Amino acid sequence: MFKKYLSYILPIKIYQKKSNVSKNLEVTWNNGQLVLDSENTNYSFGSLQRILRKGLKYIGFKRIQNFDSVLVLGVAGGSVIKTLVEEVKFTGKITGVEIDEEVVKIAKSYFKLNEIPNLELVIDDAFEFVLKTKEKYDLIIIDIFQDTTMPNFLFEDFFIKRINFLLKVNGFILFNTMVLGFQDRRRNAIYKSKFDQNYSVRMYPKIEVHNELFTIKKLA
């Protein structure tokens, strides 16, 4: 508890681990809260939790409460899952997919994701998982980064079409992107143009400075 209170004055690192996928991972007490960071960005809790909470609010907590199933691609420490369970009060099934086994260990040890009864954690590549799954989802949250880099497949037609296929009618995609310059803004504009009249797409720029959120509703 001393470290927690001291962290209001300065951050206190309590765990560090190198990972083949995420390189450097750090668990830190910061302003009285445990956060998970990579070398150059926040992975869970902290600013990332604020970003995804805003996205969930845009969709609507009441609406999400009536959903049956949520897919989270990119779990990290699980801040969006904690928001779903503790703030949204979502009681349906949550499937969390995370490629980095070290991150999953941290999520269980420090952020207690293993204590969430309606969560199934899957260690797998997101691209591979969406190819294999036979389930459909009311909400698909995409939050995949390797430090400050986003994998190219997230913006490719095949992945987009597959995600759209897995989404139920009247369901939502919540997609968190990082925008650091002109190329990223152009990439996001092209991404937005890939959805036809069967989808309602909204883009929310400059969330926590460098993040841009998409909410995409499937209409038919």
Rank of each mutant, 00 (worst) to 15 (best):
Leu34His: 02
Gly32Met: 09
Ser22Val: 00
Thr41Trp: 03
Leu36Ala: 01
Ile14Gly: 00
Val35Ser: 05
Lys23Cys: 00
Ile51Ala: 12
Leu48Arg: 09
Gly32Leu: 10
Leu36Trp: 02
Leu52Met: 14
Lys13Asn: 14
Ser44His: 04
Val35Asp: 01
Val35Tyr: 02
Lys18Pro: 00
Asn20Cys: 11
Arg50Asp: 14
Lys18Val: 03
Lys23Gly: 00
Ile14Lys: 04
Asn20Thr: 06
Ser22Cys: 01
Asp37Ala: 14
Leu48Ser: 15
Ile14Ala: 03
Trp29Cys: 07
Gln33Cys: 10
Asn40Tyr: 11
Ile51His: 10
Leu48His: 12
Arg50Trp: 11
Tyr15Cys: 08
Lys13Glu: 13
Asn40Met: 12
Lys13Leu: 11
Arg50Gly: 11
Thr41Ala: 14
Lys17His: 04
Asn30Ala: 10
Gly32Gln: 05
Tyr43Gly: 04
Gly46Glu: 01
Asn42Gln: 13
Gly32Phe: 07
Asp37Arg: 08
Tyr43Arg: 03
Asp37Gln: 07
Asn24His: 11
Ser38His: 03
Asn42Leu: 06
Gly32His: 12
Ser47Met: 14
Gln16Thr: 07
Asn30Thr: 14
Asn42Pro: 04
Glu39Ile: 02
Asn40Pro: 01
Phe45Cys: 03
Asn42Tyr: 06
Ile51Phe: 07
Ser47Leu: 12
Asn30Ser: 15
Thr28Trp: 05
Leu25Thr: 09
Ser22Thr: 00
Asn40Leu: 13
Phe45Ser: 09
Thr28Leu: 10
Val27Thr: 14
Asn42Val: 10
Ser38Thr: 07
Lys18Ala: 02
Glu39Gln: 06
Leu48Phe: 11
Gly46Phe: 02
Lys23Tyr: 04
Lys18Tyr: 02
Phe45Val: 02
Ser44Gln: 09
Ser22Tyr: 00
Gln16Trp: 06
Gly46Cys: 03
Asn20Ala: 13
Thr28Cys: 14
Gly46Pro: 04
Glu39Pro: 00
Thr28Val: 14
Val35Phe: 00
Glu39Val: 04
Ser38Lys: 00
Leu25Ile: 10
Leu34Glu: 11
Asn20Pro: 11
Asp37Gly: 06
Phe45Leu: 08
Ser19Ile: 00
Val35Thr: 13
